[in-house]
């Protein structure tokens, strides 16, 4: 296109310059048309140039915006990732704290708080389902004597060992924990006094056979009181009856199991 106009321009310039056409009636008109065309072409070039300028400016802005958008997007993703990570950290910490608050530090068994929570749950469940649950309170006999004669470390070992025996004799739905001092509790859902008694006998036998330290001339036994939850009562009533049965076992010379009347 540009070359065409340049060729045409040369031809017109030549024609206009020839002396024989100087007085030709079309010469002046051709001259004017030619100038007008040149003028328009220049103008068109300028408009195109300006328009190109605007276009590249807007393109630059678009690229810039896009870059900024991508950057913000990356930043947002990073923010979400890190924030989620912190949240997971908090949740794990919560689990660890909740575990710590429900566990007895020495024996690793459930602590009194956990036992009480479970008693409440089991009482509600028993009231709904009509299935009984039983509570056994177990107390190490003459525990103070172990502490006094063999030291507190031996006392601690005895507690840990009794805890281990209790834990290993439980069934899936049973829970045992340290009620306090040398006193342990077993919660046995769906269990009658008779089968709870059998389980307690096995536990007491294991304690006699395994929990002592024969080389130190020390043997260990335990006394147990068992009660069954009665529908509608507060669980503390059932705990009290188990406690009373335990006291009775102690009175009868220890190393025995007493059942509270159902």
């Amino acid at each position: 296109m540009k070359r065409d106009i340049e060729d045409l321009g040369r031809r017109i310039e030549q024609l206009l310059a020839q002396p024989e056409y100087r007085d030709h009636p079309l010469r002046e008109a051709l001259d004017e048309v030619w100038r007008a065309l040149l003028d328009q072409t220049t103008r068109l070039d300028r408009v195109t140039h300006i328009s190109d300028g605007y276009q590249s400016l807007s393109k630059e802005r678009e690229n810039d915006l896009d870059e900024r958008f991508q950057k913000q997007l990356r930043k947002l993703e990073k923010l979400a990732r890190i924030s989620d990570h912190y949240q997971r950290m908090m949740q794990d910490l919560n689990v660890a704290l909740s575990d710590a608050s429900n566990r007895d530090v020495l024996t690793g068994l459930a602590n009194r708080r956990h036992l009480m929570h479970r008693l409440k749950e089991e009482s509600e469940r028993a009231s709904r389902s009509g299935l009984p649950y039983t509570i056994a309170m177990l107390d190490i006999d003459h525990f103070k004597r172990i502490n006094d004669t063999l030291g507190h470390a031996a006392g601690d070992r005895a507690l840990i060992e009794v805890g281990r025996i209790l834990q290993s004799s439980l069934r899936e739905y049973d829970l045992c924990g340290r009620w306090g001092g040398e006193e342990f509790m077993l919660i046995m859902p769906g269990t009658t006094l008779v089968s709870a008694h059998a389980l307690a006998q096995r536990v007491c036998k294991s304690i006699r056979e395994q929990a002592g330290e024969p080389q130190a001339g020390q043997s260990i036994s335990a006394s147990v009181g068992i009660s069954a939850y009665r529908h509608g009562e507060h669980y503390s009533d059932a705990v009290e009856r188990a406690d009373a049965a335990l006291l009775e076992a102690k009175r009868r010379g220890r190393d025995c199991i007493m059942l509270s009347e159902a």
Partner: peptide, 12 residues
């Protein structure tokens, strides 16, 4: 140690 989301953003 622990940072909530807006603190994470501020640090970024």
């Amino acid at each position: 140690l622990y940072l909530n989301t807006s603190s994470v953003r501020a640090i970024m």
